[in-house]
Amino acid sequence: MDFFLGGLTRGLGLLINLDPEVYGIAWLSLRVSLSAVILAALAAVPLGLVIGQREFLGKRFLVVLFNTLLALPTVVVGLVVYGLLSYHGPLGGMGILYTPWAMVAAQAVLAFPLITALVIAAVITLDNRVGPTALTLGATPMQAAWAVLREARFAVLAALAAGFGRVITEVGAAIMVGGNIRHYTRTFTTAIALETSKGEFAQGMALGFFLLVVALAVNLASHQLQARWK
């Protein structure tokens, strides 16, 4: 299994040598996945907050639904988004199939149930006095919701980190709607899949190693954010 060591040293080489193609891949992966997580979070965090905080008919069903959606295979999500964005699909007119936008859309769809489920879990276990306390101190309903979020900040940021982890590591949806176009929609995972199919196992390992380094950087940044968000 020479490719473990070979991959590791080659990964370091890629990092140090500033191979422009690899840096392009890293930058695209980061941009696509971060955008997808932020887009998903814009919908998932408020939704998770409402589902977790409010009592209403069908709440349990929604919680079960979102937990079930976590089991959605990425390839199926890719297929659905492909169907939507394809020329004959309902959103075909946008013409974004095989562009980074399509990958952002697919990854946002992937991250959405995960972030929602984790935010629900975070908020449900939170002390139910947070919102009312904020209201008695003069908060608007929005500000009270923000206070709830802030009290659950560790879990909410963990939800975002989990969402990021899910989308930057997935390959099925990205390859299907992005097309793995060189210099354009080739991300870490689609490049790894390609290198592996070519038999370039060491290069695949090297890219995997590089991906970990990028993920580490993102998680360190989010940890910093967490420390400052009080």
Binding site: T133, L135, T136, G138, A147, R150
Partner: peptide
């Protein structure tokens, strides 16, 4: 509401 405030029994303090 901003002219009124409440101290609850075992009040919740923010983290």
């Amino acid at each position: 509401r901003r002219q009124i405030t409440l101290v609850a029994q075992q009040a919740y303090l923010f983290d």
